[in-house]
Nucleic acid binder design. Sequence first.
DNA 1: CCGTAAAAAGAACGGCTGTTCTGCTAGTGG
DNA 2: CCACTAGCAGAACAGCCGTTCTTTTTACGG
Lengths: 185, 185
Amino acid sequence: MPRLTDARKDLRRAQITEAAMRCFGRNGLERTSIADITAESGLSTGSIYAHYRNKAELVQASARAALAERAAVIGAWAASETPPDPDELLARLVASKDPATARVAVQIWGEATIDPAVRAIVLDMIDQTRAMLHDCVTAWLVKTGHRNPAEARQHAAPIAERVTALYLAQFLHTALRPPPEETLS
Amino acid sequence: MPRLTDARKDLRRAQITEAAMRCFGRNGLERTSIADITAESGLSTGSIYAHYRNKAELVQASARAALAERAAVIGAWAASETPPDPDELLARLVASKDPATARVAVQIWGEATIDPAVRAIVLDMIDQTRAMLHDCVTAWLVKTGHRNPAEARQHAAPIAERVTALYLAQFLHTALRPPPEETLS
DNA sequence: CCGTAAAAAGAACGGCTGTTCTGCTAGTGG
DNA sequence: CCACTAGCAGAACAGCCGTTCTTTTTACGG
């Protein structure tokens, strides 16, 4: 049966979500039409609907992509040999920010307010982020505070909570700051 | 000239924005049609367009209303006789949260990502909030730290910055938490 | 290689949206 | 108390959007 091979299928899906995210960052989730994504991706209407049941599903896929992109970066630090202290951690988080994806992410927060499926994705991603930051802080406490791991983990929890909150706020700041390009539409 | 008196005009405008904000909280900025607001407000299409040039202007008015509502609460504390300490301040901010307006506000963040006019409103409101929290923290430092006002103000700045960030994060948390009502649409 | 069935293209469609327009209504200044 | 004009209601409209359908192309399994 001549289905597309899985690798090629994933490639197409990525091609679509990447085009979609560029559009979303430019015009917003609801103001990008399927036609826009069609044009941006170089594909056609039918092709998009062959890979995603509808627009909502495409938005959900983009949500996962946008939020996962940032989560991936943090994951590495947790397992690092030299875990950064909370301030350094925050500084790194701020430094590794990309305005385009930040804009899409904040739009997705707004959508999560309304759409249960997107909300689940966002809550899950925030929780993963907190968990990873928790690991980072725990590792740092163990290395510097000479505590035993279990105790360190307990002490790390509230700190990780705060780092997460500050991170999210910085995120909003990034998304809002430099006007993409002040196009008068 | 039988214009409406200013008071009556403001009343109508408020009636419209309040209806709009209820709709926005329920269905999102872009998924509420003018017809929805018409129905919710008990007015008519023509009436709405007599008070707002277009939907974008109505969204901007709602943005101002949603963000100002929360700013008003904080303003009182700054001038208070017994300024709260930062932790107490944050606790109060969290306590005074209303999920419905929080949802609308987060949606507005998303819109601010795209629409320059809305972005200006959001940035302005965040800045006002920070300024008021700065006043709160300064007042607290003066009362407890026995510093002179000028010095206190300087020390208060970074603290206010953090309180603002933590406040915004809590805001997102509130907007995301309790599913409005899990309506299967 | 070839047959096949999925995938891609793009036209077609029904429905809905923002906005405008046309009368009717009613509040207001004199 | 009147006249007059802005406010208001609601129908009308043009355009666009998400989705589906039909046809053509293409990648895979044998």
